[in-house]
Design a protein around this nucleic acid. Sequence first.
DNA 1: CATGCAAAAGTCATCATACAACTTAATGAT
DNA 2: ATCATTAAGTTGTATGATGACTTTTGCATG
Lengths: 257, 257
Amino acid sequence: MADSTTDLRVERKPKLSETVVAAIRKQLLAGEMPPGHKLPTEGQLTETFGVSRTVIREALAKLAADGLVEARQGAGVFVTEHISTTLGVLAADMGAKDSIALNVLEVRLAIEIESAGLAAIRRNAAQEAAIQEAFFEFERLLLDSQPTGPADLAFHRAIASATNNPFYVEMLDVLGRRAIPCDVTSPWSTELVQSDDYQRGLQREHLVILNAISAGDANAAREAMRAHLAASQQRYRERLQARQAYYAKSVAAASTG
Amino acid sequence: MADSTTDLRVERKPKLSETVVAAIRKQLLAGEMPPGHKLPTEGQLTETFGVSRTVIREALAKLAADGLVEARQGAGVFVTEHISTTLGVLAADMGAKDSIALNVLEVRLAIEIESAGLAAIRRNAAQEAAIQEAFFEFERLLLDSQPTGPADLAFHRAIASATNNPFYVEMLDVLGRRAIPCDVTSPWSTELVQSDDYQRGLQREHLVILNAISAGDANAAREAMRAHLAASQQRYRERLQARQAYYAKSVAAASTG
DNA sequence: CATGCAAAAGTCATCATACAACTTAATGAT
DNA sequence: ATCATTAAGTTGTATGATGACTTTTGCATG
């Protein structure tokens, strides 16, 4: 209903600067411009893309905000040194929403990693049981071929609760409201998310976390959670690319028909 | 010359748009403009801040990239339902109670640890310089026997900025408001907080963090930050005990007199 | 020739103006 | 009263000019 789920409608306002951002980002991702290299002048980019300096400057500002480039007055615009580690290179052409979602997910990552570590140290018997319960519920739903999203959320929430710090739960709720789709069913590529292999992988990662927490090993719990969420990031990225391909296909179909 | 005394300081020119961004962001985080509210027009903002429309537009573009506002052509710029808004409400709940402050500090711990790790692999030259600058500013204030609180905050904030993830900065701003005082002067035990040994210890921990980030070692940066914040937690506890002891002593003195 | 300083060219940052595209509210006709 | 049209207001884009800063060039001096 909300615009966020209108998967059929692309961003209704494709600003010119976003087009330029996508183009330059693609070049950066392709490695056509090595780190430290100087980008063409604003004037040159103006001629290249056939837009005004206003648009070029806005595009460069956006890229700088993502940490992909760095502008030095009087010198020029340069590619960031550690560009390969930035979030911006994950998906070449993504809208502002995707960019925000990735950044929020990264904050959730910080919360959940520490959450797992604290849970390993502080969990009491009942809390450990609650985590196990969520784990097995996930298992049951998986065998019944039912949506496992709620159980997944419950698992993470149970871990946050086991920290005995109510703010971790609150943070998870606040951040999860937007970022959770990473591991839950979403409007696009539903088949992929609900595939057995996909969810089996999730559950394997969950098991490592659960074992570390049960063993009271904070470091192992943190590393397991880090691995789990890093894998989730990777899955999210693949999902973005899949959606992009889907759009491209639908557009092609529309043009032929 | 006079500049020779400040050669350690990296002269960095704050772009006008950054100033505007900071001003508007402060208003947004303070909740002065609820989600859905329409911001003043670009023309009005130019008069308010006394800058050109170019600067205003760049600032708004930055805020839009961070997901704080959304511009609709022909209609205006509107405040979005961003994470920080809900967090602001959350932060309002955490009053002045120490029990809550400790819990909040623990959340900040999660954010800052991951923040250090990301900064180590993503920081660019300017951001690394900003972190160093805050470090040396702390040093200078320490030698001058001036309050080091602001420099301490700037150090942590510079690290959050170096993640190139705007939400890490926002989280720090929201959480730090109540949690930071743990390392700043406080009404009680002022001597302890401002003692040279105390601040020397802080600076030693800061140096380890700075070195790890400069070396690009994410794991070392995380561990250094973890050690630093764990030590801060410990110091906070000691402070609470000191206050309790002080109170007990004063009660005893009152009863004897 | 080497060195240091000054001039110049190149580039980003900011300002100012104008027009186009879009949204909303007001207006007027049916 | 309803709907289409118009008008006003706002953001998006284009263009030109100027200031601030960096780098390079060139010259003068030792």
